[in-house]
Design a protein around this nucleic acid. Structure first.
Lengths: 342, 342
DNA sequence: TAGACAAATGGTAGCGCTACCATGACTGGG
DNA sequence: CCCAGTCATGGTAGCGCTACCATTTGTCTA
């Protein structure tokens, strides 16, 4: 016995209601909504009128089930509050705001295991594309990405071996450039200060180290790091530690701008002249770097563009035109400012 | 003619595969996964073994379609990069990480129309709960929230008329407290500097104004605002404008900490003594406020807790125990620091 | 010991949509 | 003028899961 349209769903209009009202088949409604070109002008108008009148909104869940593909971009980042990733995510959102795709963000907390778990969760939805931060996935996470059955973009870094596509830049080169700039400015005892030493920070450190070794000035005691998450106050503390360890320090390359700001404030507090006694270089070039007094030299990275570019590549791949260039290096730019001008 | 299990879905194991392998009905598998208590110990073990062996992961789309309810929390914030909302979102994520609920974030860009559009999109998924920033929804957005058919939590602010539940604090009181503090510290020509004057900023301004009027010191020329999004560099510029307009300014209450930091840097640059010549108060109390030199007085808000609390309330409501207290005021705390200690 | 009742399990029928094929109406080339 | 080829439309059969109702078995009370 068929109950009379019980509507356990709650009474929202369905595609069948629209079809009935427009006097066409359900499929035609479905097509009119998804591939308007394949439905005649006339019917399209009729259907649109019925849609408007009923206030019909397609059910994305039913759509995903029937087509075996959800209109969802899965995005995996290690942190939600770190401004760097927030900018990437903003770029992704802005690029997708006029598309039918929804976005689902996963926060891995810098954990490979959490990344695997989230990849599993995301994969179960059959997303349209996946955007993941970093290139250091665990072997099993990498396997999940390879078998995701959708375009995958690794962002923030470039490397030799993409799962599918990549957009980012070389953190090693960025670190080297920062250190070389300090060397050219005449600083010699240049420290490295870093918090939350994730793989990208490690590569910046490696770049710093390469530059220092080339100059014959490397000394492991110049390095001060901690696994603790980065913050301005931590920058201050780490700088104090670094000075205690090596009182003759005359420059610092900071892992990121928060740390650099903490260093600057500690210099103010301890009446250390910047840039005369200490040169400071940050990383990412947040807005505040140019406003600080003195303004702080930093390596500008193109975070928002990484987000928009990754979406563009994924959309192209979804449309069947995978970009010819699978690895996109957006580079970086050294912004020279007062903090290293002596 | 039934084709032999065509699996247009792509060959992943389904609940029927698990049921067959475990020698039980599909429903029993479904129950074992969702309400283990209702399935006998024996079968539960058998089913778990089959799930593990096949690597079965339930399809959330099919689940949502069948149960008319998606395991999704919809979250609407006006900005992704503003640290304030990022903290709220982080609290939401952390509270939900061990639950089956996924999170979908919408970025309204401070636009009521965009908020309506996103509410429509979210609603079509039949989310388990909605968390939205602010209490100033457009009438039609409010209607969408009322008819969402799920718990709704408005966050960041409290007000008299919740759609369903609320977690936040009074921005008016926060603004008043900041201004009163400056007054008590002996400042008289106290300016208000604000960017992106969203409704919350407007209420902070109203609180400032109330305090100034009570003291008989209000002057509209003390107010400097702009609709432009907030940033540290903008803080610097607005402070310059404010000083040009009113050279005798001796204190500023800043809309937020970014602005306050910009003001501090400009003071450094212009050799204006803080706190002697100018007192500065920020809002939100980001980490850097306590590290700045001089450290900056700010109104600490409990953003992460707003996130965790809103989830707790929503989960309780989903479980059928809506909290007795529908409006939760988490308050704020004035952090007195060097920038107002003269 | 019968009857009532709860606990454990299963079958059926969709949820709302789209893939896949079928159909009929045209079009155009030989 | 016929038939292949295209275009517009529709019907059918699921996608993978769960709500809703059986059905069976065991347990307790009168």
């Amino acid at each position: 016995m068929t109950r009379p349209r019980s509507r356990r769903g709650g009474g929202r209009p369905t595609i069948a209601d629209v079809a009935r009202k427009a006097g066409v088949g359900a499929i035609t409604v479905s097509r009119a909504l998804r591939e308007p070109g394949r439905v005649s002008e006339d019917l399209r108008r009729q259907i649109q009128a019925a849609v408007d009148e009923l206030g019909y909104v397609p059910d994305p869940n039913a759509r995903a089930l029937a087509s075996a593909r959800a209109e969802v971009f899965g995005v995996l980042v290690p942190s939600l509050t770190n401004n760097v990733f927030a900018e990437v995510v903003r770029g992704i959102y802005d690029s997708l705001s006029d598309s039918p795709f929804r976005i689902q963000i996963g926060n891995t907390h810098y954990s490979g295991l959490e990344e695997e778990r989230l990849l599993q969760v995301f994969g179960s939805q059959r997303p349209a594309a996946l955007i993941v931060a970093g290139i250091d996935q665990t072997p099993s996470a990498r396997r999940l990405l390879e078998n995701a059955g959708c375009p995958v973009v690794q962002v923030m870094e470039t490397g030799p071996d993409p799962v599918d596509m990549m957009v980012g830049f070389s953190h090693l080169d960025g670190g080297r450039t920062a250190a070389e700039h300090l060397l050219q400015a005449g600083y010699r005892k240049i420290g490295f200060i870093g918090a939350r030493m994730d793989p990208r920070s490690q590569r910046r450190l490696a770049g710093y180290r390469a530059a220092m070794e080339t100059a014959g000035l490397f000394d492991p005691r110049l390095i001060t790091t901690t696994p603790v998450p980065s913050s301005v106050s931590l920058g201050r503390e780490l700088f104090r530690d670094a000075l205690a360890k090596m009182p003759t320090l005359d420059g610092v390359f900071c892992n990121n701008d928060d740390i650099a700001l903490g260093v600057l404030f500690e210099c103010h507090r301890a009446s250390i002249d910047v840039p005369k006694q200490i040169g400071i270089v940050g990383f990412n070039d947040l807005d505040m770097m140019q406003v600080a007094f003195p303004s702080i030299t930093s390596v500008r990275t193109h975070r928002y563009e990484i987000g928009t570019r990754s979406v563009a590549m994924a959309l192209a791949a979804i449309a069947g035109n995978p970009p010819q260039q699978r690895i996109v290096d957006l580079g970086f730019e050294l912004m020279r400012r007062e903090s290293t001008a002596r």
